[in-house]
Design a protein around this nucleic acid. Structure first.
Length: 543
RNA sequence: UGGGGAAUCGUCCAACGGUAGGACAGCGGACUCUGACUCCGCUAAUCUAGGUUCGAAUCCUAGUUCCCCAGCCA
């Protein structure tokens, strides 16, 4: 596999350190999953799959004030959509609250934890700084009996929020601030989405995570780099309590992408402040947003794989994501013709009232996809971009006197550009060569351009949503608030003209609009398409 | 010397003492009923300075730069 995590698991298995591999994906249900989580999912579920082990889905639901059932549901939906299955192994940290509580009492009884009555401010002030050691709490040497009594009364709900905490007694002078008597339980009179009002004290991340891993006999606890400093605490807790197993934490760098924000805090803000239309807005880097945009799960996973796994802080170019999406869709998406910015074309020598159906290939990359009929008639729409009255030398498309091919149809020649009073071209008068039916000239003459088109009489109107990057700069938020870097033109809504077959497109189906890009039928009612990603365009780039 | 990490083409990842390779991006060309796709070619990197070695991206020493940590968040 070529990355350090796969190598680690492989060697742990080869050395006999573990008989099988058990990983876990442990999201907090406080928001929707995004593409950064897709990396963690790929790593944890991917390793389990690769080495014949299993991966648990565990909700790290230790902070009831931020967590909601909606997020629990969306997370399961998104993991499944990515193609992974946790089988029977769906867990919640809250499942272990009773066990965790018992272990906390054990820590207290062995003199390794104490109840601190200091205020949050005092705790902070006495923690010291990055360079100066902290000071012991005046409550640090309470007896085990007193601590136990206080802890039990905390559980009973005798004290209001913030009045006391349980802290592990480790070392207030440690260079690692996480070891300066970390808080492990706090009073939170809050309703929990799963345990309801059963508890008013909750363990925090540090006191829940490693023990949960241990309970589940996780062998490899894989997390992102910012938890590196927590590892000594993770191990201290396991070493000082009667836990059933000793999982090993290993960290990897999280995913960063240019022109993208992957911070739950900011994504939540964009939704809350309506900078986007919701968690599943196609401009969002959420799994739900990407799905709605038309990104196939295979492409998303392929991107994550291509971006690689290491311990170096890195920022992957969004171009790599686009490339993965195009590569997958090129092979799988059916082709159709759609005109986004219509310009009317009248074929003067095509009989009025006449019409015919022409054969069009559904997917040149996949012969099994077959073909379909596309209606042709005297009046058509072509793309405004495909005509220039005064073309520069490298412009191969339509211009007065120029002959081009209409895909699957005929060669046409532009005879005249009709303008309105303001001088805008509003219609093209053209002629066609009946001998070129199907798109080839019997005399062997060539054209330099093949253009897409739709028959005006048969065209189906549709709303097309064009998405551009949500941010104007590759490093949004680098100067502070990413809201200031939001792209005001991230969504452009136009009305396009589609070939009739497209009205039967399935919701969620991603197709190619030839020469334009990949588009996905939206979940909103009506005929609406989201642009997933544009095609590469060497001509546009050269301009 | 507060603690902990990381530095390889423009970007991301490999190479684990023995020819620095791949992907994306870029450039050039071929092909083409999508200026797409495909194919071919090119450009382009070991943070710095010493040292060990027949041989160093890899080992050692000293620096430099960047990232993380001072929530009763995760």
């Amino acid at each position: 596999m070529g990355n350090f995590l796969w190598n680690l698991v492989e060697s742990d298995l080869a050395s006999g350190k573990h008989k099988g591999v058990v990983t876990r994906f442990p999201p907090e249900p406080n928001g929707y999953l995004h593409i950064g989580h897709a990396k963690a999912i790929y790593i944890n579920f991917g390793i389990a799959k690769e080495f014949g082990g299993r991966c648990h889905l565990r909700f790290d639901d230790t902070n009831p004030v931020k967590e909601e059932q909606e997020y629990i549901d969306s997370i399961q939906r998104d993991v499944r959509w990515l193609g992974y299955d946790w089988g029977q192994h769906l867990y919640y940290a809250s499942d272990y609250f009773e066990q965790l509580y018992t272990w906390a009492e054990h820590l207290i009884s062995t003199g390794k934890a104490y109840i601190d009555d200091q205020s949050a401010d005092d705790i902070r002030n006495n923690r010291g700084t990055l360079t100066a050691p902290g000071k012991n709490s005046p409550f640090r040497d309470r007896s085990a009996e007193e601590n136990l009594d206080l802890f039990r009364r905390m559980r009973k709900g005798e004290f209001p929020n913030g009045t006391r905490v349980l802290r592990a007694k480790i070392d207030m002078a440690s260079g690692n601030i996480n070891l300066r008597d970390p808080v492990i339980y706090r009073i939170l009179h809050a309703h929990h989405p799963r345990t309801g009002d059963a508890w008013c004290i909750y363990p925090n991340y540090d006191f829940a995570h490693g023990q949960s891993d241990s309970i589940e006999h996780v062998t490899h606890s894989l997390c992102s780099l910012e938890f590196e400093d927590h590892k000594p605490l993770y191990e201290w807790l396991l070493a000082n309590m009667p836990v059933p197993s000793f999982p090993k934490q290993t960290e990897f760098a999280r995913l960063n992408i240019t022109y993208t924000i992957l911070s739950k805090r900011h994504l939540t803000q964009f939704v809350r402040d309506k900078h986007v239309r919701g968690w599943d807005d196609p401009r969002m880097p959420t799994i739900a947003g990407l799905r709605r945009r038309g990104v196939p799960p295979e492409a998303l996973l392929d991107f994550v794989k291509r971006a690689g796994v290491s311990r170096a802080n890195a920022v992957v170019e969004i171009a790599m994501f686009d490339a993965a999406v195009r590569e997958y869709l090129n092979k799988s998406a059916s082709r159709y013709m759609a005109v986004l910015r219509p310009l009317k074309v009248v074929i003067e020598n095509y009989p009025e009232g006449a019409g015919e159906e022409l054969e069009a290939v559904n997917n040149p990359e996949d012969p099994a996809a077959g073909s379909r009929k596309v209606p042709f008639s005297r009046e058509l729409y072509i793309e405004q971009d495909d005509f220039m009255e005064n073309p520069p030398k490298k412009f191969f498309r339509l211009s007065p006197g120029m002959e081009v091919r209409l895909r699957y149809a005929y060669f046409i020649t532009c005879r005249e550009a009709v303008k309105d009073a303001a001088g805008n071209v509003i219609e093209l008068r053209c002629t066609y060569d009946p001998a070129t039916k199907g798109g080839n000239a019997p005399d062997g003459r060539k054209v330099k351009a093949t253009m897409h088109w739709v028959s005006a009489a048969h065209a189906v109107p549709a709303e097309v949503r064009l998405y551009n990057p949500l941010f104007l700069r590759p490093d949004p938020g680098a100067d502070g608030d990413p809201v200031k870097d939001l792209n005001p033109d991230s969504l452009e809504i136009i009305e396009g003209k589609l070939e009739p077959a497209l009205k039967d497109a399935k919701v969620g189906e991603t197709v190619q609009f030839e020469r334009l890009g990949y588009f996905c039928r939206d979940t909103d009612s009506g005929l609406i398409f989201n642009r997933t990603v544009g095609l590469r365009d060497a001509y546009a780039k050269a301009q």
